[in-house]
């Protein structure tokens, strides 16, 4: 059976291989006696192109092997989205606010009751901040709460 997902993945590998190979050519390949920076990535890129072509060929014929079916991707998608927003706002808003919201989202996706959700995300944020920032000396960004922390 041909699976469109596998063909897309194979194409991704192929494109990555082509990009790196092209970049390696630009870096100068050199000769074996005097290899230049592009030598190793070039050889490796060509190998990846060959392998992913073979994979695509087999995927086209429906023989690329087993992949697992996607379940309900709403949960993972929500968490990834929350994480992207987290990265974007971490340094501006600070660790405490953003982490509180992030853990609330994760718990929400896991269908936690509201009261427990608030309690757990709040205590997790505060405990982790104290343990890592105060105890272990990891500097976490204070953000807009600088004045209070």
């Amino acid at each position: 059976m041909r699976k469109p997902g596998e063909i897309v993945v194979g194409l991704c590998f192929l494109v990555i291989g082509i990009c790196f190979t092209a970049g390696a050519v630009k870096l100068q390949i050199g000769v074996p006696t005097e290899p230049q920076p592009g030598f190793f990535p070039f050889v490796d890129g060509v190998i990846l192109i060959a392998l992913s072509s073979l994979f695509l060929f087999r995927a086209w014929g429906g023989r690329a092997g087993d992949s697992h079916a996607f379940g309900r991707i709403k949960g993972p998608a929500a968490v990834v989205l929350a994480l992207v927003l987290y990265v974007a706002t971490l340094e501006r808003l600070g660790y405490v606010i953003t982490t509180g919201l992030l853990s609330a989202v994760v718990l929400k996706v896991m269908e936690t009751r509201p009261r427990v959700l608030v309690l757990v995300s709040l205590s997790l944020t505060v405990i982790s901040y104290l343990v890592f920032d105060r105890l272990l000396g990891v500097t976490l960004p204070p953000g807009i709460l600088t004045a209070f922390l």
Binding site: S123, V126, I127, L130, R134, L149
Partner: peptide
């Protein structure tokens, strides 16, 4: 148990707040 945790946290917060910042 929860209350104990909260209490403990508050203590730690108080100590942390006193650290020279």
């Amino acid at each position: 148990l929860t209350m104990m945790w909260v209490g403990l946290l508050m203590c730690i917060c108080a100590v942390g707040g006193m650290a020279p910042t």
